[in-house]
């Protein structure tokens, strides 16, 4: 049962990840990234992290990827047209190195962790409260810094995306 669920969502994640990378239309890339992220969220639940799963869907797919779509539609980016220099060579190289990477790291992790089955989840292992306690005690400072970082990002994004002449709209008239 659990293996079936894992295989289903793992397959979904890999297929949609391939579509993200291969599809020429960025809107389709974003849409299949949504599928990838939602299926990894399911895997998070299976790993005993339901809080992260909900956050992943809420933050990533609910906000960040919508922002991507917004920008794609705003800039009206079309599909990639004619390739310029060394397109297929670069692609082949990337493919080969990706395959080698998967082979090496995959075999190491297979060797190190084969036969290690995860124990079944218990209500204690998925509880959110201890997580919150740790976040707001041990990791309080990083948490605050993240808040500051987000504020800086908001200000930075606003400044960057603003039209240069938006300061004085009356000037032109």
């Amino acid at each position: 049962m659990e293996i079936g669920v894992f295989l289903l969502f793992a397959l979904l994640a890999v297929t949609s990840a391939l579509v993200v990378v291969v599809h020429r239309n960025p809107v389709y890339s974003v849409m299949s990234l949504v599928v990838t992220l939602v299926s990894t969220a399911v895997l998070f639940v299976m790993l005993g992290a339901p809080f992260l799963a909900a956050l992943q869907v809420l933050v990533y797919t609910g906000a960040i990827l919508v922002l991507f779509l917004f920008v794609i539609m705003l800039l009206n980016i079309e599909r990639e047209t004619q390739r310029t220099n060394g397109g297929w060579f670069k692609k082949l190289a990337a493919l080969i190195s990706a395959a080698i990477f998967v082979a090496i790291v995959g075999s190491i992790s297979l060797q190190a962790y084969t036969g290690r089955f995860l124990e079944a989840l218990t209500p204690e292992s998925v509880a959110i409260e201890p997580l919150a306690r740790e976040l707001f005690s041990t990791y309080l400072l990083p948490f605050e810094i993240i808040g500051l970082l987000l504020l800086a990002a908001v200000v930075g994004a606003t400044v960057l995306a603003r039209k240069q002449d938006a300061v004085s709209p009356e000037k032109e008239r």
């Binding site: 659990e2 793992a10 299976m46 790993l47 990477f101 084969t114 290690r116 089955f117």
Partner: peptide, 12 residues
Amino acid sequence: TVPVSWYLLLAV
């Protein structure tokens, strides 16, 4: 349950 290595393989 699912072996850990499968998750790691998927991540890789």
